[in-house]
């Protein structure tokens, strides 16, 4: 026993290190197979030459990025100008996603606050109720929303029956319908992180603020919001990013009259001509933008914690 003791520490740390490798191995395999390889493939494909009707030729080119940024006219022989088509699609998608995120925040924050301030035993029930709709497939939920807001649907029938409106509101196939769909799809992603932050909030801080003659709004602004901010930001990121690539809601509720980033990419792989490098390039540009936003956020967070 005594003789073994001196070497014991180093042996166990070696065993420990070996175990660590074995233990984190699977997560690296998963990240590698399901994240890194697809992302690298996407980036590589975006620099290859397109083959007509899908597929690629292994000749490197910047044609896909050229198509994204420069407009050479319908027949490709005009002097290049800035191509606004795709930038416009990006801008519309960002705007839609931002509106949906704002809507989620406005409804989600009070909801999360309400749940977090209930009796601890009730909270589980409320959270459970928030998650119930998410047992149903996203497609079915989106179609249901369509049924609800269509001109002949229950919402318009009710409004007309009660005499609030004379004619259907014409909600379907509008940007608002898309935002409503995105909002409904991703609301729990906003509620849950904010709930987690509010639950940890020490309510004696609010009392202390009140003791110092702080009004309700001042307390909210100066005490509560800074404390639960990480939850709000996490919620916004979780809603914004999937909304940005969504194509179900725009297709079903917005009438698919305009491309979103998601449907633009889909068309490159499923459409008649098929342009895989261009689809990959759009995906790569989208990923780059999201990465940049997240990096800026991470830096801001890092500075703050110093």
């Amino acid at each position: 026993m005594a003789a073994a003791a001196p070497g014991g520490a180093s042996t166990s740390s070696r065993i420990y290190r070996g175990n660590v490798l074995r233990l984190i191995g699977p997560s690296w395999v998963i990240i590698g197979i399901f994240l890194l390889i697809p992302v690298i493939l996407t980036v590589v494909y975006s620099f290859l030459t397109k083959e007509f009707r899908g597929g690629v030729q292994w000749t490197p080119t910047l044609a896909a990025y050229d198509q994204f940024f420069f407009d050479r006219g319908l027949f490709g022989d005009e002097p290049p100008r800035i191509e606004w088509t795709y930038l416009g699609i990006f801008w519309r998608s960002v705007w839609q996603a931002a509106s949906a995120t704002l809507l989620c925040l406005v409804i989600g924050f009070p909801t999360a606050w309400f749940i977090a301030t209930r009796d601890p035993r009730q909270r589980a029930t409320w959270l459970f109720m928030i998650t119930i709709p998410y047992w149903v497939n996203l497609l079915i939920r989106t179609v249901s929303m369509k049924f609800l807001i269509r001109d002949e649907g229950p919402l318009n029938s009710l409004l007309m029956w009660t005499g609030i409106t004379d004619a259907p509101l014409g909600l379907i196939n509008t940007n608002f319908a898309v935002q409503l769909g995105l909002f409904y799809s991703y609301l729990p992603f906003m509620v849950l992180p904010i709930y987690a932050a509010v639950e940890r909030y020490d309510f004696s801080l609010s009392e202390a603020a009140a003791d110092l003659y702080s009004g309700m709004w001042t307390t909210l602004r100066l005490v509560i919001l800074p404390t639960v901010r990480p939850g709000i930001i996490a919620g916004c990121i979780l809603v914004f990013i999937p909304s940005l690539g969504a194509f179900l809601a725009p297709d079903l509720l917005g009438g698919a009259k305009t491309f979103m980033i998601g449907s633009l990419i889909e068309e490159q792989f499923k459409g008649a001509a098929g342009n895989w490098p261009f689809g990959s390039a759009v995906a790569t540009i989208l990923m780059t933008i999201i990465m940049a936003v997240l990096l800026v956020y991470a830096r801001a967070q890092g500075k703050e914690s110093k």
Partner: peptide, 17 residues
């Protein structure tokens, strides 16, 4: 053929931009 299909694709994208 490819030379005409790309034009129809461009018209379609232009329609839905």
């Amino acid at each position: 053929p490819q030379d005409s299909q790309v034009l129809y694709d461009a018209i379609w994208t232009n329609l839905k931009k």
